[in-house]
């Protein structure tokens, strides 16, 4: 019997989950951060692609919680727990600074703020970050395989590597 593998695509300000043999990915992360929460034994995982650090800065009500680190990470955790995940760990990537520093515009440092916000959200939930590939100044495409718990990372003009 053959099984078909599906790749689940996660967009910007989106969060999805996946079970083996399927994999989950998000494309073209710049200053955004991709966070994978996974249960190694049960081979379930989820991926969140956040755009901004803090939902308290939203200037509109009823904002999409998956856009912000502080709201997306707890929701992702709950989605996984609802599917029976228990021993949950994290891997993360992204948060690059895409432009050279200029005069203090909002383009600047957003990557760093996103990284810090995700780390803080994970700390609050007592989730251990097993590995991460953050910062720098290059965009990333990332894909997680719940079968192996490996997160593969691709940058433009670079070979794929896993963490």
């Amino acid at each position: 019997m053959t099984t078909t593998k599906t790749i689940v695509n996660v967009g910007i300000a989106d969060t999805k989950t996946v079970q083996h043999p399927n994999t989950i990915r998000t494309l073209g992360l710049g200053s955004c951060v991709g966070t994978v929460l996974y249960d190694e034994k049960r081979r379930i995982a989820g991926l969140s692609h956040i755009l901004l650090p803090d939902s308290n800065q939203a200037r509109a009500a009823n904002s999409n919680p998956m856009k912000y680190a502080d709201t997306a990470i707890p929701q992702l955790l709950k989605m996984l727990q609802d599917q029976g995940a228990r021993d949950i760990k994290a891997k993360m990537a992204g948060g690059a600074q895409m432009f050279q520093a200029g005069k203090g515009t909002s383009f600047m440092r957003i990557g760093d703020k996103n990284i810090e916000a995700v780390q803080e959200a994970l700390r609050k939930l007592n989730i251990r970050i097993v590995s991460s590939d953050v910062g720098g100044n290059l965009g990333r495409t990332i894909e997680f395989d719940p079968e192996t718990s490996r997160l593969s990372i691709r940058k433009r003009n670079h070979d794929i590597y896993t963490i």
């Binding site: 073209g28 992360l29 710049g30 200053s31 755009l51 800065q57 909002s106 383009f107 965009g139």
Partner: peptide, 17 residues
């Protein structure tokens, strides 16, 4: 770089609202 990585920065202000 990749379009996703660059264009999201243009959306930061809008995305606050």
């Amino acid at each position: 770089d990749m379009a996703g990585a660059i264009m999201t920065l243009g959306l930061l202000e809008v995305s606050q609202v």
